[in-house]
């Protein structure tokens, strides 16, 4: 039994790492920012952490914090142009950002190892650290979305004019969401660096971007459980059905098309909505008189 569990440990680690990245993507979408920058910000964090430890001999915990800071600061810088753009333009601009990070990464080979990547990072992060990080992340996402910030994010995403008319500053809240998302991506990038001995520039490219997006879209964009469900399903699917492992990108592609067209709220969100509707209609039936008078008013 323990052997079987141990066999799944690498997968569990991968799940926790990708879950953090998925929350980084999830938070910006929740605040109505059309950003795909998580991949680029994770690269910034991963390389910041890796270089600090390998070249400058920083202790891993300090490097981890600085990586988060770096992710947050880059996100702050990026949010200035993003705040002036809308929808599709934000998506294009962030894809350009990823591309710039990728090519600078390869160009600055003296610092980053270039195409060969950054090697010899001491492995200081294991399952326990990742689990703690995961729990902390879920807690923070929960508190943020249940605070005035989360309420403002929800309003902005659904209707900017309404949000502004109620005193919500759109630019300030979207910038904040983006900074938190960037810090999260930075921290998880560094966790990935400290977990895997080596970094390669291609690691944070388009395959990564698509995977993270697929987790969030499949799971659900508006509930906290969404990214957990999406990440778990997409990582487990190839394990359960081995032939699918070969066609991972094909499966992701088909799922993206199907989910967006037929289950636009994602699996977790749709289930939660259904459960809520059932509960409410049951309550309505029970206290019919109260509800009817309320409806008549």
């Amino acid at each position: 039994m323990t052997n079987i569990l141990l066999g799944y440990q690498p997968l569990f680690d991968l799940f926790l790492l990708h879950l953090g990245m998925a929350y980084s993507q999830w938070l910006v979408l929740r605040a109505g920012v059309f950003s795909l920058a998580t991949a680029g910000l994770a690269a910034v964090g991963a390389y910041t952490g890796g270089i600090l430890v390998v070249s400058l001999g920083f202790p891993a915990p300090v490097a981890l914090l600085l990586a988060g800071l770096a992710g947050g600061i880059v996100a702050l810088g990026l949010s200035i142009p993003l705040a002036r753009l809308r929808g599709v333009y934000q998506a294009i601009a962030t894809v350009a950002f990823i591309q710039i990070v990728l090519s600078l990464n390869i160009y600055a080979s003296g610092l980053t190892g270039g195409p060969q990547g950054l090697n010899g990072i001491p492995k200081t992060v294991g399952t326990v650290t990742l689990l703690i990080a995961g729990i902390l992340t879920v807690y923070l996402m929960y508190t943020i979305t249940n605070s005035r910030l989360g309420r403002a994010f929800d309003a902005i995403r659904q209707n900017e004019a309404v949000a502004a008319s109620l005193g919500v500053s759109i630019v300030r809240h979207q910038t904040l969401a983006f900074i938190i998302s960037g810090a999260l991506a930075g921290v998880y990038g560094a966790l990935e660096a400290f977990h895997s001995y080596a970094l390669a520039p291609s690691q944070f490219g388009f395959t990564f971007l698509i995977s993270i997006l697929a987790y969030v879209v499949l799971g659900g964009r508006n509930t906290i459980i969404g990214p957990i469900v999406g990440t778990a399903i997409l990582l487990l699917l190839p394990e359960i059905a081995r032939p699918l492992a070969e066609a991972r990108m094909l499966v992701y592609g088909l799922l993206l098309i199907l989910v967006i067209n037929y289950l636009p709220h994602g699996i977790a969100d749709t289930l939660i909505e259904r459960a809520r509707a059932r509960r409410l209609s049951a309550r309505l039936a029970k206290s019919d008189s109260v509800a009817t008078t309320a409806t008549r008013n």
Binding site: L140, T143, I144, A152, L166, G167
Partner: peptide, 27 residues
């Protein structure tokens, strides 16, 4: 439309919410 009736009203109180951003993030 995604939010409940109560949540729709809560956002109206945004102007009165004074707690610090850090307090909101950390709960």
């Amino acid at each position: 439309p995604d939010n409940s009736v109560l949540e729709n009203i809560l956002i109206g109180f945004h102007r009165h919410e004074k707690c610090s951003t850090l307090a909101a993030i950390l709960g």
